[in-house]
Amino acid sequence: MMTAAVNHYFRSSIGRKHLVAITGLLLCGFLVGHLSGNLLLLVGPDAFNIYAHKLISLGPLLYVIETVLALVFLVHLYLAARLNIENRQARGKYTLKTRTGRGTTLMSASMPYTGVVLLVFIILHLMNLKFGTNYQTQVDGVQMRDIYRTTVEYFQSPVSVAWYVFAMACAGFHTAHGFSSAFQSLGLNFPKYYPKIKIISYLYAVTIAGGFAFLSIWCYLKGV
């Protein structure tokens, strides 16, 4: 039964922040899986295509997973945007800069902007790749989509690579602050291990952003 307290939770400053944190961490987890799969590009066209084919063959289960992912993404984006609008109205407008240099970082200050870049990026990313040219190929006699070719072809344009690297830099900035901030938001800031979470946060950001960016450049250099 929904009590008044639970009801308020989903409207409150802290409750909504918990949801941004949980959805943010789920998206961070998704990126780990996505990057791991993409590493198969390095193994070769067949390995990557078979992997993609296996995912597509999940059929209805894949739709369920995709729907959940889309919902997680929309909740994150909607609540983060709402909170950001409230925060803009709540803060004081000063004539001088108020940053001490010991709090706000470039990463924390740019969260809404890197978020918007990610939103635009994800829409274009789906259009260009998932819904990009549907080449067909055969691996061991099995007919399947040649998503390897679509991918490598897409990255033949230096503009595509540059935009991709830029978007990944934004993803790195977003998660460098977001990952550790999510732990703080969820109340998981204990002096014993919070400094380590901060380090993991930076390592995560560099690995994810660097990994994806590297693969885009690799595709460009590899050629069709």
């Binding site: 802290i14 909504r16 925060n87 709540a90 001490t100 010991r102 709090g103 924390s108 901030s181 938001s185």
Partner: peptide, 18 residues
């Protein structure tokens, strides 16, 4: 707190610094 026009935390930690 939420009804008085205060904003929400985004872990800038400027508060702790000042």
């Amino acid at each position: 707190h939420d009804t008085l026009g205060f904003g929400n935390c985004t872990t800038h930690a400027e508060c702790e610094a000042t």
